[in-house]
Amino acid sequence: MTVVDKTTTRVRSWLGTGSSRKIRLSLATQEAIWFYIFVAPWLLAFFLFTLGPMVASFLFSFTQYNAIQPPVWIGLKNFVTLSGDPVFWKSIRVTFTYAVVFVPLNLAISLFLAAMLNLAVPAMRVIRTIYYLPAVLPEVVTGLVWIWIFNPDFGLLNYLLYLLTGLKGPNWLGSETWVMPAVIISALWGMGSGVIIFLAALQSVSPELYEAAEIDGASALRRYFTITLPMISPVILFNLLVGTIGALQVFARIYVMTQGGPNYASYFYNLYLYSNAFSYFRLGLASAQAWILFVVIMILTLIILRTSGRWVYYAGGR
């Protein structure tokens, strides 16, 4: 304890916050030192546990490697193989189609739901918990349920469609056209985490802002668009970015629901990557795939972050 105390005192004095102020660093330097102290645990964990495996997988992408025999350096051959592989390109098309539709849709619905779930209505705690349920149910269970819901003949979805329109619904999971909408519908069901993050964000909007607006006579909708959305825009950015990264890495649900079929119509990028790694014993090729995805996500992230300045409002400035 005493050692810690001593150190603390020394560091404090050093940083200009303690009692003795013999050495005084500039405020900017102090701030930078504090920054690095705070980030140190993450940096340590990163250097110890994350960077090594990342670098290894990067090196593997230039090798033929099955995890059993030592890797053999083959230069860019994995990348050449992928560029000539129709399944690879198909998996890219599938994944991007999904992301382009799902991410904005999910964002809009989550925002809407969060706003509704934020109302002070009786039994709201129970309602919120019910909406959160899908996030905690095991994938095995939900996989089975979806196969039943999407059944063309007696599935619930087609039954509802029949009630509403009188038409016979499609063979969702058995049709190359309809499997993607089915995947998106099932994905929208389990969106718990996006909603609860928005819910938390709504709490940090000052009620005084709303009161002022209400006095000015702004309607609920207008208040939502002129106060709520700008105030929670940092969190919208968060959900957009994390949602995009997640959408490009979809795996588990597809594995249970469609196995990528029919005829590769839901063959997602990560499904192919996983198959290459652990079913086909081609870890080198899988690593190349992973790093291609890495670069794509990195570029998308940079674009989103760069353009976010135009629509994200940070009350705290810096």
Binding site: F46, G52, P53, M54, S57, Q249, L273, F278, L283, A286
Partner: peptide, 23 residues
């Protein structure tokens, strides 16, 4: 550093799993 932080989300676990296991 912040971009490095974000970058750790971008690489599928499938390919870092084995080197991490070795580690």
């Amino acid at each position: 550093i912040f971009m490095v932080v974000l970058s750790t989300m971008m690489l599928p676990y499938t390919v870092t799993m084995i080197p991490q296991f070795v580690l």
